[in-house]
Design a protein around this nucleic acid. Sequence first.
DNA 1: ACAGCTTGTGCAAACGTTTGAACAAAAGCC
DNA 2: GGCTTTTGTTCAAACGTTTGCACAAGCTGT
Lengths: 341, 341
Amino acid sequence: MAITIVDVAKKAGVSPSTVSRVLSNHPRISPATAAKVREVLKELGYHPNIMAKSLVSKTTNTIGLILPRPAEELFQNLFFSEVIRGIVTQSARTGYDLMMTTGTTEREELEAVTRLVKGRRVDGVILLYSRQSDPLISFMLEHGFPFVLIGRSEEFPDILSVDNDNVQAAYDATRHLIAQGHKRIGFVSGPPNLIVSGDRMKGYLQALKDAGIEARPEWIVEGDFLQESGYRAMSFFMCLPERPTAIVVIDDVVAFGVLRGLTELGYKVPDDLSLVGFNNISLSELSTPPISSIDIGIYQIGYTASQTLIRAVKGEAMPQKRVIIPHRLIVRESSLVQVKN
Amino acid sequence: MAITIVDVAKKAGVSPSTVSRVLSNHPRISPATAAKVREVLKELGYHPNIMAKSLVSKTTNTIGLILPRPAEELFQNLFFSEVIRGIVTQSARTGYDLMMTTGTTEREELEAVTRLVKGRRVDGVILLYSRQSDPLISFMLEHGFPFVLIGRSEEFPDILSVDNDNVQAAYDATRHLIAQGHKRIGFVSGPPNLIVSGDRMKGYLQALKDAGIEARPEWIVEGDFLQESGYRAMSFFMCLPERPTAIVVIDDVVAFGVLRGLTELGYKVPDDLSLVGFNNISLSELSTPPISSIDIGIYQIGYTASQTLIRAVKGEAMPQKRVIIPHRLIVRESSLVQVKN
DNA sequence: ACAGCTTGTGCAAACGTTTGAACAAAAGCC
DNA sequence: GGCTTTTGTTCAAACGTTTGCACAAGCTGT
């Protein structure tokens, strides 16, 4: 059915090996033969069978992307579209294909990854976001399989990873609110098993401490990365006898929920409550009011992760194991009010 | 390095073919041998090399997803996360792997697809969203390669496709505004080369016509699927000597831009201008005010597309070529005002 | 007890590549 | 002009599977 190297060889009157060598620009091929073969290649519309190629070369020109479980929820958040966008773009640009996988349960997840890794389906994988003591990391290390982690691992600080400095980011966000005159600052956190939650919490607490402000446990609530948790957090905060005047919110999507909750309760942002979020998703700019946010460079993280992985599988030298993408604070209306104490 | 069928065969004291047959549950294998082999399989931690498997079986257990160009922009819109979520979930559930590809230029795009299709890398592909006279469709048909289209093709109505009824959806949206008493209704459209734009425009015009309302060309503006275009549309609409009292907006993300534009100009939604969008992205519910939207069942579209494709590559019977996912109108505050004429 | 089935297993070819080794022809050297 | 080196090409093995065919052994039924 399909055109193989043998078909081309026959038609060009050479051996299959010669065709193969023309294809891979082997130095010891005469210009005349090369030209001839190339002509037939064009004429017949030859395309290499990647399976056969991979079988012998043991490389697939493909990288795998392991989505954290449950992927369902994940996609609600723009963070992932954005990071995937970075990965897709970079890998396409380098001529690598991208394979995505996920699983609903822990078992399914590990199974899918095993299929990819042990089935020699991909040359390396990107692990998207790390949990505390992620079993996948151990799995990869155990098998000596190339991978880069998006995020940070506390147990294995020496693996290839791309991340931002979440502690500093949260510190900056909190610091900004303090600079606006706020002294009563709350925090809407994420799931505690995600490292990002812990890191941002740490930065928040440190900023308070450095400013000589005592943290109030009742002003810290745990949520997830969905809007509802922001919404819920507000019903809680605003019923407190003593309320914060500003909050740091773990994610812009959650901040959207916060905004909606406040509006429904009849409060105004930033006058009644200032807020700053994370990730600077595109909608933050156009919400009412626009949300101040820490721009994490999510796209850049995905792009860099892909780049790092591809370099690694090609065996290129790694300047550094751990890349930190810089963040920056984007101040918008939601935190633009000076508090008089 | 890796464990092959031959290693297992040796250790179990049988031939490689026997191992292969155990693996594929061949009927003529004695229970005793099967048990023995399976034991060794476990013990050695065997995993099939998918490349070798594919090479002989000519099937890859992988489907491809072709993202429309330019993928960069695309991902800004939640539509795609959502549809990809549906595809990933379904394919993972069926044990299929998913391969994503894209290209920056037309040439790159076709190249990537060719690599997938002619390189026998995937068993079939999903074409995400169709343009007018999409060259990829012709390409697939020409090569007799299994594919399903998300969207609609005017030239090839007989191919496998999953879509919603965009004409009817826009009709319903417009009808809803008319039912609220509006007679002056505008439309913010999408890029004219996308079929979805044309379809929604058609439904909008038809609804007006059926209600005996004349369409006003100056109340129809063309945008893209990004927020800015909604924002821009407002600066235009609101400066008109005669303004619409309601608008249909091609996408919720664009509606966000509209909302922001109106707020900045000092107008209130829905009092000064009512609006209804499409796609019912998760943030629509929590914006201020919440946006009325046509829920297209995007996740369902992705899920069904994957399901259809996998059935097709397995050679299962297709009940129908063209699947239409039903939509429904979600009425929220942004269109909840009765107009007195 | 023998022909004919059935059952379980092994052999070997095939899938489409790559690549080291072999080799013939041409070229370079003194 | 013989010897070595270079250049261009082919041969054949290998990658890890699957699968048609052959075949031996164990059953049937007469």
